[in-house]
């Protein structure tokens, strides 16, 4: 049944698919995860702070982001960010930020909502005696968080954070709505150009599946190692 298929199209486009497409996807994933974890940690700290107003704002933000489909947020942000930039800088025209920056900001903001919940659970998993001991040694709130609570929370939550990053890796394919050259976008372009839809989409599926699967396996092994150490 594969007789009429031309799988050579994959070989011919490998360079473009991986050196351009996959490189873009991995860059976007890594930067989004990094930004999302940093921003998400700040949101988690806001939620757990004693200040009710801060906690409320952070809570609303998380609920808001989690109640919207990611595609919509990507789309919405792409058109909104230039105007936001104009408003912030007082420029006379909407500021063009480029599709990549827009997508990156979107993913960071969106994923921060999910990462913040993970970090919140991680921070709450640390017994209250730990910050008390740090305080008793004279550490400030910031020092207590930075040197005592967050390193432990981050370590405890590392497997979950990585699993969420694997989901993020798959979600980055949604930038196709902005016609960006990520891996799926690149595969799609080749597919359209050469009229080889089945071959290319099949190949894209296999690649996403393989990478995610291997990564998940790695996370499970890491989890096993961490739980032995503790």
């Amino acid at each position: 049944m594969f007789a009429s298929f031309d799988f050579d199209v994959i070989r011919r486009s490998l360079g473009y698919l991986f050196l351009d497409g996959m490189a873009f996807t991995l860059t976007l994933t890594a930067l989004s995860a990094l930004g999302g974890i940093i921003f998400g940690t700040l949101i988690a700290l806001m939620r757990l702070s004693g200040f009710k107003v801060l906690g409320r704002i952070a809570g609303l933000y998380v609920d808001f982001m989690r109640s919207l489909p990611l595609v919509l947020v990507i789309f919405w942000f792409y058109f909104l960010v230039p105007y936001l930039g104009q408003w912030l800088t007082g420029a006379s025209r909407p500021i063009s930020v480029g599709a990549f920056t827009s997508a990156l900001v979107t993913f960071i903001m969106f994923e921060a909502a999910y990462f913040s919940e993970i970090m919140r659970a991680g921070i709450q998993s640390i017994s209250k005696g730990q910050p008390a001991a740090a305080n008793a040694l004279g550490m400030t709130y910031a020092q207590t968080m930075r040197y005592v609570v967050l390193p432990q929370a981050f370590r405890n939550m590392l497997p979950v954070l990585l699993t969420q990053t694997i989901v993020l890796f798959q979600d980055t394919s949604l930038v196709y709505v902005l016609s960006m050259p990520d891996f799926l976008g690149a595969a799609s372009k080749v597919a359209q150009r050469d009229g080889r839809l089945v071959e290319m989409y099949l190949f894209a599926a296999v690649v996403y599946f393989t990478i995610s699967c291997v990564a998940s396996f790695g996370v499970r092994r890491l989890q096993a190692r961490i739980s032995i150490v503790r």
Partner: peptide
Amino acid sequence: RARVGMVFQHFELFP
């Protein structure tokens, strides 16, 4: 607090 030492029931060393 930095000038007063405190020892806890559950040690609270940083693991």
